[in-house]
């Protein structure tokens, strides 16, 4: 696989990567999108916002590989610019629920008793409402826009993470090394966050990848309903919504942003699978 000259670290790294093709594929797809987001001004051939009435609804061609929309904007450029917003949605829409859920789940599982009962009933209440209905009503109260979307995600999405972590905590807090930590006089917060959480969190990290896919689709759905990203800003969900009325005559308006969602979702799923292999094996 490698020559003798390759350093030990490199050898291990390449072997590690070689064993985990899924992970590598997921990372590459995500890297591609991150590159597109960062380099958007450099690689996007046209301005994503400016209208050009002479170039309306041009089908995919050499100059416009993804075609143009009803305002004459280049779809490829818009898809590239939209990467910025969609990655932001996937990241921020996951990180807040992840943090809140992890902390509450850790506390709930570790201490048990009354604290646990209260948190678990709270989770039951949140879960009692259909996910999208709850989100839509929160966004409706806060007013449309991405920040409302993030707040709604944080308020609704944390329950899954809290449950995952809590279950792990319930198991781990009875493990011998947790008992050992207690017997050595370590403080509760040290045991919880330094000893137990790193061992409990693998499942949540894997879940967060597939959760990012759902958040992405939710973000697209919210934007599609006009409650998220507002036109003329480019976002894949918005673009799909805009192209909907031309679906029979100009399929490319809907198709390429939709394809981007699918590919990114696919990449995140691969990443999640790959991570679960890596983290699950514990080195």
């Amino acid at each position: 696989m490698s020559t003798v000259h390759v350093s030990d670290w490199n050898l291990r790294w390449s072997r590690w990567l070689g064993q985990r093709v899924t992970l590598a594929a997921g990372v590459s797809i995500l890297a591609l999108f991150i590159f597109a987001a960062i380099a958007a001004p450099l690689i996007a051939p046209y301005d994503p916002i400016v209208h050009n009435s002479e170039l309306r609804l041009v089908p995919p061609s050499l100059f416009h590989p993804f075609g143009t929309d009803n305002f004459g904007r280049d779809i490829l450029s818009r898809v590239i610019w939209a990467t910025r917003i969609d990655l932001q949605i996937a990241f921020l829409g996951v990180i807040f629920p992840f943090l809140i859920g992890t902390i509450l789940g850790t506390i709930s599982g570790y201490f048990g008793g009354m604290v646990d009962i209260i948190f678990m009933r709270l989770i039951d209440v949140v879960l009692a409402f259909p996910f999208l209905v709850l989100m839509l009503s929160i966004i409706a109260i806060l007013g449309p826009g991405l920040s409302s979307f993030y707040i709604a995600m944080a308020l609704v999405g944390w329950v899954s993470y809290a449950r995952l972590i809590r279950t792990q905590m319930l198991v781990l807090k009875n493990s011998d090394y947790a008992v050992a930590a207690v017997s050595l006089g370590f403080s509760n917060s040290r045991i919880m966050f330094r000893h137990l959480l790193p061992n409990a969190i693998a499942g949540s990290i894997v879940f967060s990848m597939s959760d990012a896919v759902l958040v992405l689709l939710n973000g697209a759905a919210i934007s599609y309903l006009g409650l998220g990203v507002q036109p003329p800003l480019a976002e894949w969900g918005v673009m799909v919504a805009e192209g909907q009325s031309f679906i029979s005559t100009a399929w490319w308006i809907t198709f390429f942003p939709g394809l981007s969602i699918v590919v990114l979702a696919f990449g995140l799923s691969l990443l999640g699978d790959g991570l679960s292999e890596t983290l699950g094996a514990r080195q």
Partner: peptide, 12 residues
């Protein structure tokens, strides 16, 4: 101090 049964489970 305590020493445990299962050596793997006893260490973080």
């Amino acid at each position: 101090a305590m020493v445990f049964q299962d050596p793997y489970n006893a260490l973080n």
